Simulated assay, not measured.
Amino acid sequence: MTDQIPGIRHAGSHNFFLMAGPCAIEGEEIALRIAERIVSITDKLRIPYVFKGSYRKANRSRIDSFTGIGDEKALKILAKVKSEFGVPAVTDIHESAEAEMAAAYVDVLQIPAFLCRQTDLLVAAAKTGKTVNIKKGQFLSASSMSFAVDKVKDSGNDKIILTDRGNTFGYQDLIVDFRGIPEMRAFGVPVVMDCTHSLQQPNQSSGVTGGKPALIETIAKAAIAVGADGLFIETHPDPKNAKSDGANMLQLDLLEDLLLKLIRVREAVL
C-alpha cells in the first residue's frame, strides 16, 4: 500500500514500509546524519522509507521543554533531507493554519493522536493534496478511526494512512491492542504501528515522559505478525541526550538488526 506515498523508493517491495527519524529536528547536521544511515540500511534491505522529523513539538508537559529550532529552519532541513537522499518526509501539524505551510516542504502531513478528532485540522491537511497520516487517539477504539478517514476522504483526498500508538492504560502507561491493526486495515487504508510512542510512560511527576525502549522489538514483531503495512520508529544516535522523547527512542545502531529480524517475520506470515 505504499502507493499512498508519492515518490517512495522500493514501492514494489513485499516488505513493510518504514517511517523513521528523530522525534524533533534538532539541527541540520544530526538530521542529515540520521537520514543518511537509515537510507543506507533501507536501500540495502529494499524497505520503502519515509524520513520522520517534527519541525515543532507542541504537546509538552512543561513550558521549559524543547519545542524546536524555529519552524522555517526545521522545515528547510526536512526539505534538504528530501533533496539530498531522494526520500519522502513526514512531519506533524497542530493547527489548520500550519497545513499549507508544512505541505510546501514535506510529502506526508501527520495528525497527532490527541488531535485526530479535530475536523478543521483534518480538512485542512486533506485539502493540501498531501498524504495524511492520522495517529489514532490514545482515548479511541480502532473502529472509531473510520470517522477520521471519512473526514479526509469527504474533503477530496484518498491518500490516507492510520497509525496506532497504543491506548491509555491508567494515568502513566499505554497498552497496545493488536486487534486494532486488522480493524483499521478493513477501512482500505495502510496501517502503521508506532513502535516507540506506544511504549511511552506519560504524566511522570518530573514532567518528562518516560518509556520502555527495550520492548520496541516486541511491539514491532507483533505488529508485523498481525499484518501492519508499516512501522513508525523514532531513532537517534544518542537517545539519552536527544532533545525530545529520548526515553522511548531506539538507538540508531540497533535499527539494522531489528529490521532484519522483522523482514524474517514478514516473510513467515505472508
Rank of each mutant, 00 (worst) to 15 (best):
T2H: 08
T2N: 12
Q4G: 07
Q4L: 09
I5T: 06
H10F: 10
H10G: 04
G12E: 14
S13G: 11
S13H: 15
N15D: 08
N15Y: 08
F16R: 14
L18E: 12
L18S: 12
M19Q: 12
P22S: 11
I25V: 11
I25R: 06
E26Q: 04
E29G: 09
R33Y: 13
A35M: 01
E36M: 06
E36A: 15
R37S: 07
V39S: 06
I41Y: 04
K44E: 15
I47W: 01
I47M: 00
P48V: 05
G53P: 00
N59T: 05
R60Y: 07
I63F: 14
D64R: 02
G68S: 05
D71T: 13
A74S: 04
I77L: 05
L78K: 04
L78S: 04
K82P: 03
S83R: 14
S83D: 11
F85Y: 07
F85S: 01
P88H: 10
A89Y: 04
V90C: 11
H94Q: 02
M101P: 00
P112D: 04
A113I: 02
A113N: 02
Q118I: 00
L121Q: 04
L121C: 03
L122V: 08
V123R: 01
A125M: 05
T128Y: 12
G129K: 13
G129P: 11
K130C: 10
T131K: 08
T131F: 12
N133H: 13
K135R: 09
Q138M: 11
F139M: 08
L140P: 03
S144M: 15
S144D: 15
M145K: 13
F147H: 10
A148G: 10
K151N: 13
V152K: 07
D154V: 06
S155R: 02
N157Y: 07
N157A: 05
N157D: 01
D158S: 13
K159F: 14
T163A: 12
D164A: 09
R165K: 02
N167H: 05
F169I: 01
Q172M: 05
D173K: 01
I175N: 06
D177C: 02
R179S: 05
G180Y: 00
G180M: 02
R185C: 02
P190F: 05
M193E: 07
D194R: 09
C195K: 06
L199W: 01
Q200F: 01
Q201R: 15
N203L: 05
Q204A: 04
Q204I: 15
S205K: 15
S205A: 15
S206A: 06
S206C: 10
G207T: 06
G207S: 07
V208Y: 15
G210W: 07
A214C: 08
L215G: 14
L215T: 14
I216A: 09
A222H: 14
D229M: 04
E234P: 03
T235V: 08
P237N: 03
P239R: 03
A242T: 03
D245Y: 03
G246W: 09
N248G: 07
N248C: 15
L252E: 02
L254A: 13
D257F: 15
L258R: 09
L259Y: 14
L262R: 09
I263F: 00
R266G: 09
A268M: 13
L270I: 13
